[in-house]
Nucleic acid binder design. Structure first.
Lengths: 121, 121
DNA sequence: ATATCATATGAACAGTTATTCATATGTTCA
DNA sequence: TGAACATATGAATAACTGTTCATATGATAT
């Protein structure tokens, strides 16, 4: 009785057509969902999480960050580039030293909510 | 003058020792940071984001989810397992049909904050 | 019983990613 | 100018991840 509406990938039948249609109406734009996943991808790495938490406390230069989290300067520099591209950190130069700091107020809230999930029983 | 304190990986010198020590004191436990990254890793995939957004609107069976987001039943099932392991979704069985629903109230807040970052100018 | 359907799962493959290494850039200081 | 230092970056490698395919499981209905 039920037909498969417009999906070439799905290899099964829609069981609750009304529910699917209702949910489809409420889905955010595909583009937003993609961008959201991209953002969380950036958060999904221990090194980057450590860097961001460090910057919650203070702006820091690359060398200090590397020392703090016990990673090579190169690894930290690579990750800072990722964070910079995601518009999560910004930097200022002072001679040969580059200071990085946070560029977003939402991060802390996101992390706090994340920690609430983790620390639940 | 500056020495490298206890880090074997870092290949540079601590420039601001006081800052590093202060920041180190304020860092959350290594374990939390690891778990947090693991959580965000789960969010860092478009398919899983879509599934979670779908479940914001209603509980759904696997087949309906697959149809909605235009993925194979198998792919969806694999991702639901990941979400289940992360304690983000739960399920109930009704005959041969399995209904999945959200198992966490924090997710929506996390996503909303994430969207605020994305939709900023 | 057997055919059908919904779901789960293991293996394989392709694509992605984080770190390392070597090196380049640009600044400071002697 | 040249040595030392902070940072950036490209290439290579190893590890990880998501999808697909084939198949298994378990339930329903005839």
């Amino acid at each position: 009785m039920h037909e498969n509406y417009g999906s070439d990938k799905c290899d099964c039948n829609i069981i609750h057509e009304d529910v699917v249609n209702m949910v489809r109406k409420n889905m955010p734009k595909e583009e937003y969902l993609y961008d959201l996943a991209e953002l969380f991808k950036v958060f999904g790495d221990t090194t980057r999480i450590k860097i961001l938490y460090a910057l919650f406390a203070s702006e820091m230069c690359v060398c200090d960050i590397a020392s703090l989290i016990n990673m090579t300067q190169s690894a930290v520099s690579h990750q800072l580039r990722v964070l910079k591209q995601a518009r999560l950190v910004k930097y200022r130069k002072e001679g040969k030293i580059v200071y990085y700091s946070l560029d977003d107020e939402h991060i802390k809230h996101i992390f706090d909510q994340g920690l609430m999930h983790i620390t639940e029983t």
